[in-house]
Design a protein around this nucleic acid. Structure first.
Lengths: 336, 336
DNA sequence: ATTGACATCCAAAACGTTTTGGATTACAAT
DNA sequence: ATTGTAATCCAAAACGTTTTGGATGTCAAT
């Protein structure tokens, strides 16, 4: 039913070739013919069939993004902002965004394979890298363009954007030390994630600077959710010698920790310090506002997409590995 | 470079037709030939070129979802959950999800038009409907399948899923009334959204049942963000006769209102009641936990996608308009 | 009158599939 | 020997584009 280039050809009495060339501004079609064809195309409401165009041009103008969802009640404010970043940038450059949702696991890689082999996307945005990341290994192997948010173990030779988690955590821990805290606990995200190792290393190194160590019972592990932050903080608080400060590996778990503190009738920022990492929008308006390390998620989304588009277009990349320096955001959750 | 059906044909000495038919399980190819072709295809690592397949089949197996982003610091936990719902369902049925981000406005409709005319998607998920929704008018006009989350004015004859906002708000207001509140303020989302009108009507009707009205200075308007909830609540609290309860039109604004209360040194749930709407995951772990009206966002995402897929496949729909009954979630933000 | 240059046009191939409408063969029934 | 039937195969068209490699015509210079 929709009007094709063939319809225009018939209507104008010109050939398919000429119509195509007229609409694309080639110089070998006379001004009058072009004007006429353009007018008719407009009148008939022509829009090119992108599938046909892409099949012929052998590129998809589509970027892939596979969202790692953890369980049905998946809600990570982190991702909506990141998605806005890639979505907006892709749109500006005329790229589509193909989104899949997949929990990490075997099937995850299957989805990548399917999109790559089915030639559905020109490249991928890979997010939340793991130390040995099969996705990155695969994409490198099949030589499909991608840009990662985060590094893997060994910092191989592939493009990524990351924030320096070690430095970020060190700033945070030093801040807590400067406030007099000696008993600092840490709730870590699963260590398969590279950023989790970095952040943990930051904690350890900063403590070491003050001749302290991270005691075994002051180290807990959560799964990035608020719920797990709450559970782990409860455990920490019921130690015989509870910490005076709890750092969570991300803001969501920090919120959970705040709840745990408040459930015990303690006041966050007075009785105990809580800090997070990421600086999601809600951190600012939490009660009390959360001290955290800022990560410009939207901007990172934009940068990554910019880089990816340059790569798929074959344009040179000035820097293919970007490590952003973090910024400490001091709010009230660690006291004044 | 990638292996095509033609390569297999050459390698097996069979025709393109036979290869295609063998791989699709047609009955007019001998078992031996089929086995041979399948084996070779496997060996050569064949995967069909989806673009070519779709061009030929004249359908895209792709669903469109245009995410209304408001500003760069866009973060709506609501959407990540909803996205998980549609993403998972689409994936299960073998559909791809094409996501665009676009702030509402003229360009928004342009994106719909482009996807429809470019034959990029089989149908759309439309979210956050407005009273006179140009997207719905357009999609109806061009007869493109879609399912909306939310209604428009007049409840026209199109498929949607919605929660009964009037009933939800009535439950909430009645709850507050039963706790003795007589001075209830309401922070409404922009009234262009249909759900905002419904929720407001719910507030008004429930107050009317108790022979109360919503005083003009107890009605504020926010833009769904936490920040605006905070600002509006501050305004309400500095009235000469401040309300004893503040209802926000969504949870995010309720969180903002909680911050405003706490900034004044008041205690949410004791000195003043705060309630929201949506029951996003964070509502449960907020401090204090937020009384709100539950909306099964993930499930709604799944239902909508289910319906949409049925429609694009031409299967019959048992009910094309679903209105879910809400559930009041009583937590501590309105006192015991 | 040729030649060359230029402007304008187009047929056909190509992208990788699926489907249509037979063609061929073998074998049994007449 | 012909006919019918079933099994197996395939050439060609189609989906809607873009691109290649000319074809044609005009006009000025020789």
């Amino acid at each position: 039913m929709p009007v094709t280039i063939k319809d225009i050809a018939k209507r104008t009495g010109k050939s398919i070739t000429t119509v195509s060339r007229a609409l694309h501004g080639y110089q070998d079609v006379s001004p009058e013919t072009r004007a006429m064809i353009v007018r008719v195309a407009e009148e008939m409401g022509y829009t090119p069939n992108l599938l046909a165009q892409r099949l012929q041009k052998q590129r998809t103008d589509t970027l892939g993004f596979i969202l790692p969802t953890f369980g049905p009640r998946f809600s990570d404010p982190f991702f909506s902002e990141f998605l806005a970043g890639i979505g907006n940038t892709a749109g500006e450059y005329g790229y589509d965004l193909l989104v899949s949702t997949q929990p990490p696991g075997e099937k995850e890689l299957e989805v990548y394979r399917q999109k790559v082999m089915g030639r559905q996307v020109d490249g991928f945005v890979v997010v939340r890298t793991r130390c040995q990341d099969p996705r990155i290994q695969y994409l490198r192997k099949v030589q499909t363009p991608f840009v990662a948010f985060g590094r893997t173990e060994g910092d191989l030779d592939y493009p990524f954007v990351d924030e320096d988690g070690v430095a970020g955590m060190k700033m945070l821990v030093r801040h807590l030390l400067s406030l007099g805290h000696q008993h600092i606990a840490y709730i870590s995200p699963p260590l398969e994630f590279t950023f989790a190792r970095d952040r943990m290393r930051g904690v350890r190194e900063a403590l070491a600077e003050a001749n302290l160590t991270l005691a075994e019972d002051y180290l807990a592990f959560g799964d990035l959710t608020q719920r797990s932050g709450l559970a782990q903080a409860q455990k920490l608080l019921s130690l015989s010698k509870p910490p005076t400060a709890i750092i969570a590996g991300n803001d969501l778990m920090a919120f959970g920790a705040m709840s745990a503190v408040q459930q015990r009738g303690l006041r966050v920022g007075r009785d105990i310090a809580i800090a997070g990492f990421d600086d999601i929008p809600m951190a600012e308006t939490a009660h009390p506002p959360l001290t955290t390390v800022h990560q410009p998620i939207y901007k990172i989304g934009r940068m990554i997409t910019d880089m990816l588009i340059k790569i798929v277009r074959g344009e040179p990349l000035e820097t293919q590995q970007v490590v952003l320096q973090p910024q400490l955001i001091i709010r009230q959750s660690c006291g004044e």
